[in-house]
């Protein structure tokens, strides 16, 4: 029963179950699939909560550099006066005060909230660019493989298998020295934070695109047989037009879902790489390297140890829930 309803919905026909209060008598209003999806999404309370938290993170992430500029956040200045003789923060819970809501860092006295907040900006930016890059590579190769078929499909399929057989964390660790040198010496990326960020973004994407390509290829295989594609072929549409004007617009739903699931994976990956010392280095804060710095004080300053970890966990959970919610809303037939 439910399947027939959702089939009608996906064809853009009026909802047969109907919402009487929204319909004028005699005038039946059609709802687009997108609008139906948004309505379904709005009804899902968990997804809405995660959506709001994700939005707050993004807003906070955008604001942080400006707050630093206006002196409201200060991730770098030392406050030795707030530390006791063991260089641990004075006062309870890691030195929490109005001026330092998450306390100060042991050893240096830097403001923990500023470091976590600005770290969020950088971690989100890295994860965002890396996932956009992985999506771009995966989408283009997936469309080409699915649409062309034959030998091209085979070659891209083997490339996917090959990439997946690399141990990615190990590769990212081991390649850091030679590739950092390659980036700075041969590609003239300025040394330091920018070169490390470039390294992480590029290599996360290089090892991360295969699942996207597989997913998109599968979708394209079915889109390929639709009437509008045949029509476009008859009109003599160029390959480029075929890929990006005819097929790509039909892929936005799976792309959006996989994007919201890839991004949190990259936030975690960036943190893990920071722990291994192959991402942006302190004193520039990322969530990963703030947490790494805090590990030395794990036993003595729980607030400092827990804050960056919680910041990572919360955004990762919310992005995952958001992705699940979007999938349910966009594809009502899927039932996890």
């Amino acid at each position: 029963m439910t399947t027939t309803v959702s089939n009608l919905e996906s064809e853009g026909l009026p909802d047969p179950t109907g919402h009487p209060d929204e319909m004028d008598r005699g005038k039946v209003e059609g709802k687009s699939p997108t609008r139906l999806a948004i309505e379904r999404f709005r009804k899902d309370r968990l997804s809405m909560v995660s959506f709001i938290i994700v939005a707050l993170y993004i807003l906070g992430g955008i604001l942080a550099p400006f707050l630093v500029k206006f002196g409201l956040l200060d991730p770098t200045s030392y406050h030795q006066d707030l530390l006791n003789e063991f260089t641990l923060p004075e006062g309870p819970l890691g030195g929490i005060s109005w001026k330092h809501p998450l306390g100060v860092e042991p050893g240096t006295g830097r403001d923990v909230m500023s470091r976590v907040w600005l770290g969020t900006t950088l971690s989100l930016t890295i994860a965002l660019i890396a996932s956009l890059l992985a999506m771009a590579i995966g989408t283009v190769l997936g469309i080409i493989a699915g649409f062309t078929g034959g030998l091209t499909d085979g070659v891209i399929g083997r490339l996917i298998d090959l990439t997946l057989s690399f141990p990615s964390t190990l590769m990212l660790l081991a390649l850091s020295a030679p590739m950092y040198a390659l980036l700075t010496k041969n590609f003239h990326v300025p040394e330091g934070d920018l070169a490390w960020a470039t390294y992480v973004v590029v290599f996360l994407a290089i090892f991360g695109w295969p699942p996207i390509a597989r997913l998109i290829r599968g979708q394209v295989l079915s889109i390929r047989e639709r009437e509008f594609v045949h029509a476009a072929t008859l009109f003599g549409a160029s390959r480029f037009r075929m890929y990006f004007k005819e097929i790509l617009p039909n892929l936005w739903a799976p792309l959006l879902v996989s994007f919201t699931l890839l991004l949190p994976a990259y936030i975690s990956a960036e943190a893990a790489l920071s722990y291994l010392g192959v991402s942006i280095k302190p004193p520039t804060p990322t969530l990963g390297n703030v947490l790494r710095d805090s590990l030395n004080y794990a036993e003595f300053d729980f607030v400092y140890f827990f804050s960056p970890a919680f910041a990572i966990a919360l955004i990762v959970v919310c992005f995952n829930l958001l992705g699940d919610g979007l999938r349910d809303a966009l594809d009502p037939k899927s039932n996890r």
Partner: peptide, 8 residues
Amino acid sequence: LYAFPSFF
């Protein structure tokens, strides 16, 4: 639990 970094 999955979302907390494993090194934490």
